[in-house]
Every structure is written in C-alpha cells, then in structure tokens.
Simulated assay, not measured.
Amino acid sequence: MSAPSHEENLSPLASTDRSTWFSRLCEHTAFWMLLILLGLVFVFSLISPNHAFFSVSNFFTIALNASQLVLLAAGMTFLLGSREFDLSVGANVVLSSILAAKTITGLAGSPDQVAMGDYPNLTVAIIAGVAVALLTGTLFGLINGLVVTRLKISSFLVTLATTTVGLGIALVITHGANVPDIPRVLQISFATNKIFGVIPLPVAVSLIIVCLLWYILSKTRFGTHTLALGSSPNAARRAGIDINSHSLYLFSLMGLLCGVAAVLDISRFATTNIGGHQTDNLQAVAAAVIGGTSLFGGIASMSGTVIGTLIPVVLSTGLVIMGLDSFYQLIVVGLIVIVAVYIDQRNRQRSV
C-alpha cells in the first residue's frame, strides 16, 4: 500500500481552518488591491522597454513620488474611519507651503542677499519655516474641526468651504505667483539626499510617520475610539468617548500631516506650487478607499492605504515609461475606486 499523501494527512478541522482563513482574506479590499498593485508591477516590468520599470532606482522614484500623498491619505484614513471628511487638504498644503517659504526667504537674509542666493541666517530660517508649516497646517485642521463640532455642520460642506478660503488667502499673499528664491540647500541636503545612498530622506520620513500612525490606529485606545466613532456615534457617546474632543484631534492630525507634506513639497521642488494640489483631496480619499477604508466609517486600514497610494503612482510611472499619456491613470483609478466601494458595500451587506 502506498504511503498516504500530504493532503490525506490533513484533518478536516485543519482544512476548514485554511478555508476560513482564505475566505476572510478575500473579504478584505486591501487584499484585492494588493493583487492589482502586484499585477501592475508585473505587467509594466514585462512590457516596458528593456524592462526599465523593474529597477531599484525606479521603485525608489515611485516611493518618492508617493511620499507626500501617503501622508495625506493616512490622515484621511483616520477621518474616514470616524465617518468624517476633509476636502481642504490641498488648500492646506498650498497655504502651509507658502507661509513656510515666505518665512524662510524673509529670515534667511536681506532681500538683496536672498535674490543673489546668499543666506546668512539659513539654519534659523529653515527651522522657523518648518515650524510655521506645521503650525499653519495644524491650525487649519483645528479650525475645520471647531466649525464641524461647534456649529454641527457636515465636515464635507465645512471643508469644501475652507478650501476656497485657504486658496483665497494663499492667492492674496502671493498675488497668484509662486514664492521664489527658496534655498536649494533644502533640495540638495534633504529632498535628494539618501540614507546609505539608497533610501531618499523624504521616503524615510513618510515611512516612519505612517508606521507610527499604523500603530496608533491598530494598537491604541485612540485608534479604537476613532473606529468606534465611525461605527456608531451614539454608542461611542454612551461608552464615554468625548466625540467633539476626539474629532478635534483627528482634524488637527490631518492638518499636521498637511504641514509635513508642505515641507516635503518645497524641499523637493525648491518652490511653492499654488496650482499643483487641486486634486490632493480626491487622491487622498481615493487612496484610503482603494485600500479598504470605508466611506461609511468604522473600518480603516493603514497598510491598505499605502497600497492605495502606490497604485496611481505605479500607473503614472509605468505609462510614462511606456511613452503613453499619464492621464490615463485617472480613468483607471476611478474604475478601481468604484470596485473598492462595491466590495466594501458587499461586505457590509454580508455582515448585517
């Protein structure tokens, strides 16, 4: 008699456990989006000229391009998990970057010195500029939270309104022109600098922040309260959670991350970008939703958000390498968002 095969040695309970584990995995939107991401990487690596897509340098370029968006998407993950929105993140990034740039160029030296590229007070100016960006972003988010919690207005409407206010203030300050003469040392010493000659510093900063936010969301009481707020505000209130205070923390956190993104923005491009952040809000929401965070609150995935951030960046990079218009990514990302929302709704219906 031949020896029993490995499959024959599996007990029915073990087979059931594996089946249950796989079924649960298939219920997660992030799992399907990861398969899409890996599929895109495989296809572009296979069909790109000389397999240029599949290289370490290109992967780090992708990570660098995603380093700002992933911060905004991470903050949006917390807000969506609590059943809130922030559509003003693009305006926040623009305003924070402008005030930071104005601070740096104003403190680095006299107008003539700055125009000539001479910055006698460079260190103080950069420290003050970073502080201004973080403070501006946090204050912007705090104002959003105060209006939402105190006036009891939908966060969707509030942040839609503060988008125009923020952009209006930015345009008044700059008269519609980008801030010039930002020290290129920010670009050389930070944005293009690499740890061990491999990992760009902005990528390392974003990775550390996202890992910290993952821990807060999944391992701390703050994260539990955030998802409880999104699942049922009334139940969260009865459980003793201060809903207004917690919402203020969430909007302030979103603002702080906008400030960090603003610092990365001006350091990478050595200029402000007034017209370049108009779709940041939708991209951040899309990244979070693609990754499995529910638009209806109560469910959030930080690791999924990272996947959701990488998908459009991989698409854009791959299309450029192929010599195609990168705008096709907008069509594909929109379709993926529809699929992600459908999966979320289907899973919710099953759980009812």
Rank of each mutant, 00 (worst) to 15 (best):
I182D: 02
P183Y: 04
P183S: 09
R184A: 14
V185H: 07
V185S: 14
L186T: 13
L186C: 11
Q187P: 13
I188H: 12
I188D: 13
I188P: 05
S189C: 12
F190M: 01
F190C: 02
A191I: 07
A191V: 08
A191H: 07
A191L: 02
T192W: 03
T192N: 11
T192F: 14
T192Q: 12
N193P: 01
N193L: 06
I195V: 15
I195H: 11
I195K: 14
I199P: 05
P200Q: 10
P200Y: 11
L201E: 00
L201Y: 03
P202G: 05
P202T: 04
V205Q: 07
V205P: 04
S206D: 01
S206H: 09
L207Y: 06
I208K: 05
I208Y: 02
I209Q: 06
V210W: 00
V210R: 00
V210A: 02
C211S: 10
C211P: 01
C211E: 07
Y215I: 15
Y215F: 15
K219G: 08
T220P: 03
T220K: 10
T220E: 08
R221L: 07
G223I: 13
T224A: 08
T224C: 04
H225I: 09
T226N: 07
T226W: 04
T226H: 13
T226C: 11
L227R: 09
L227W: 06
A228C: 12
A228R: 07
G230W: 11
S231M: 06
S232I: 02
S232D: 09
P233W: 02
N234E: 13
A235F: 08
R238F: 13
G240Q: 11
G240R: 13
G240P: 13
I241N: 01
I241W: 00
I243K: 07
N244Y: 12
H246Y: 08
H246I: 03
H246G: 00
S247T: 10
L248F: 06
L248C: 01
L248Q: 04
Y249R: 12
F251I: 12
S252W: 04
S252F: 05
S252V: 10
M254N: 13
G255E: 02
G255R: 01
G255Q: 02
L256F: 15
L256N: 09
G259C: 11
G259T: 13
G259Q: 14
V260L: 10
A261D: 00
A262C: 05
A262L: 08
V263M: 07
L264P: 15
L264G: 14
I266Q: 00
I266H: 04
S267V: 09
S267L: 03
F269Q: 09
F269Y: 14
F269I: 14
A270D: 06
T271P: 01
T271M: 11
N273K: 15
N273E: 01
I274R: 08
G275V: 07
G276N: 12
H277T: 01
D280A: 03
